[in-house]
Write a protein that binds this DNA or RNA. Structure first.
Lengths: 143, 143
DNA sequence: CTGTATTCATACCGTGTCAATAGGATTTAA
DNA sequence: TTAAATCCTATTGACACGGTATGAATACAG
């Protein structure tokens, strides 16, 4: 019951891009250095985000990546689902017709409530929220 | 981000025990048959529940297992945590001092909210709730 | 036009976990 | 004494995780 590094790194990557959102592309090497994550591994992760058009890539020297939308348009749920796959705690919550016990399985209620609770959280937080949170936190340290 | 079979089977196993709570021990073979789960695999799972004193075992012929407490005294969270381990979506939510980025990691907020949401669900549902739910459901079919 | 910085694509790999299966030892009611 | 049950431990195949490695393609700077 854990979010893997793929999802966690993707979120940090996107947050890093949002924090350094100047119009200029941000190179993966810079992100990897700041986030202390293997740049080679980040390549694989951002490739997914790129194919989904969550980021735009600029090739060649001085290249890098730019967010395609405004930070408030990305929810945490979008990013996690893209990189992690479904966030449902069990398969039967999503794939109807998967389990023949569906109709007399009381535990299904548990999984549905869990699923709803998780979705409620990740779909209500945007990248912009995280940016605000981090900027505000940085302010505290200055004082 | 999935609950494994260990946790899911444990929950169904405990629910089965609660539904057949007559005072007489219930054999694993019966549970396995009703739940359509490999009895050999269930052995390993119930062994954990037994060691934690969630169930009492009766050895020998006509033996089996009995709940040690009333169904309303078991939360889903207790059962899942015992068999799955922690339900936290990431390690840093629990193990303080695990990650040196703790203090400037905005994503931690996401994980904490997720953790709270999950715990709220699993800790507020008891085995008795599931029993009621299942009995009520059975009633619907009779009509 | 050349060198260098960057993204892109793909292959590979060691480790660990999952989800069982297997085999037998031990206990006990009938 | 036998059959039914729990208990214990080892093994296994498949797959996911968390990366590394290699090199090709692209494009900017000088």
């Amino acid at each position: 019951m854990k979010i893997s590094t793929k999802g966690r790194y993707a979120l940090r990557l996107m947050l890093d891009l949002a924090l350094h959102h100047t119009g200029e592309p941000v190179s993966l090497k810079d992100i990897a250095r700041r986030q202390e994550i293997s740049d080679k591994y980040l390549e694989q992760i951002i490739s997914v985000l790129n194919k989904a058009k969550y980021v735009k890539s600029v090739r060649g020297a001085q290249g890098g990546y730019i967010l395609t939308k405004r930070p408030e348009e990305y929810t945490v749920g979008m990013i996690l689902r893209l990189t992690e796959g479904s966030l449902a705690p069990v398969a039967c919550v999503e794939d109807e017709m998967q389990c023949k016990r569906m109709h007399d399985c009381a535990t299904l209620m548990v999984w549905k409530k869990m699923n709803d609770a998780i979705n409620e959280v990740v779909d209500s937080i945007t990248l912009a929220d995280l940016v605000d949170f981090e900027r505000q936190r940085a302010g505290e340290y200055i004082i």
